[in-house]
Simulated assay, not measured.
Amino acid sequence: MVEHRSVNVNGIRLHIAEEGEGPLVVLLHGFPECWYSWRHQFAPLAAAGYRVVAPDQRGYGRSDRPEEIEAYTILHLVGDVIGLIHALGEESAVVVGHDWGAPVAWHTALLRPDVVSAVAGLSVPPQPRGPVPPLRAMRERFDGQFYWNYFETPGVADAELAAAPRTTFRRTLYGACGDNPHNNPPAQPLIQPGGGFLDRVKAPEKLPSWITEEDIDVFVAEYGEAGFTGGLNWYRNLDRNWELTAAWQGAAVQPPALYITGDRDLVYRFPGMEDLLPALPNLHPNLREPIILEGCGHWTQQERPQEVNAALLEFLDSL
């Protein structure tokens, strides 16, 4: 049974959901999500003999939400993961991340291989540090219409997403999933001039089978007080992260690693992915052969829980 409590880490309070006993597995959610995104992973991993902990990361859900945008750099986020592992009384853990949680997981493994015994990323692969800051790169490539750039301006996306949270979650979760016929293949997530993030997709009349109205209720409730600003601040630090990680240019992820994605995931079609994905085993020698789930969209562990659980358990048991 999943239990909830708060843990003090690096001067902030993180809400965590946990189940099971054994080697620690930390599950890191993405945007706009929370601990509940891992609801299908708790029981199977716990039953297999693992201690499963999914925090609301800083800025999300029931965890603290620092006001300063600069408090959400990748170094803060990695520090939270390392601090959480130690606050839980452990010296090491397997770290698994989805969406934004994946870059946090990859960077935690990159920066602290002494603490991360293995790492897995869902949707977002370990990406090389590019020659120019990412927000600038996307701004120049897509004339400022890429959704990262729309998220840049404080208050704009925050207000749009918070205006009607239920609509936000129904549109966002359906919009990026494999059941949306427009994601075969997915188009680049561009925001039209004068439009908003949610204008890209209409709310479905009926949700796909992997998500229920009750699930939407939980996401709405978890975001009721928190809003979306904390999560959006992660995007606002993309260029700052590029500056902070210069010392790791060209570095490889050392712990055993696993990457899972769907062929209808918008990230799968991001610029450069067609060259990056085949090169991953050479860039990171301890990375297993990537798993590509046919017909799966962006919400990997929610859309395909059985396949993701089987892959994670096989990976964990092999360590």
Rank of each mutant, 00 (worst) to 15 (best):
E33G: 02
E68V: 07
G49H: 06
Q57H: 05
P66T: 02
A71I: 01
G79V: 03
G61D: 12
W38F: 15
Y60T: 10
G59N: 05
V52E: 05
I69K: 12
P44R: 02
R58C: 00
A47P: 03
A48F: 13
R62L: 13
A46D: 01
H40R: 15
A54N: 14
Y60I: 08
G49E: 04
Q57F: 05
A54W: 03
E68A: 08
D56W: 00
Y72A: 08
H76D: 05
A43K: 15
L45S: 03
G61P: 02
A71V: 02
A54Q: 13
L75F: 09
R51G: 11
V53G: 06
W38I: 02
Y36P: 01
P32V: 00
G79I: 01
Y50Q: 01
V53H: 01
Q57S: 08
V78C: 02
P66M: 03
S63N: 11
W35G: 13
A48Q: 11
Y72P: 06
C34D: 14
H76G: 01
Q41F: 10
A46N: 01
G61A: 09
Y50A: 06
A47Q: 10
E67A: 15
H29Q: 11
Y36Q: 07
F31V: 09
S37T: 15
L45C: 12
H29S: 10
A54Y: 09
R51H: 14
A48I: 10
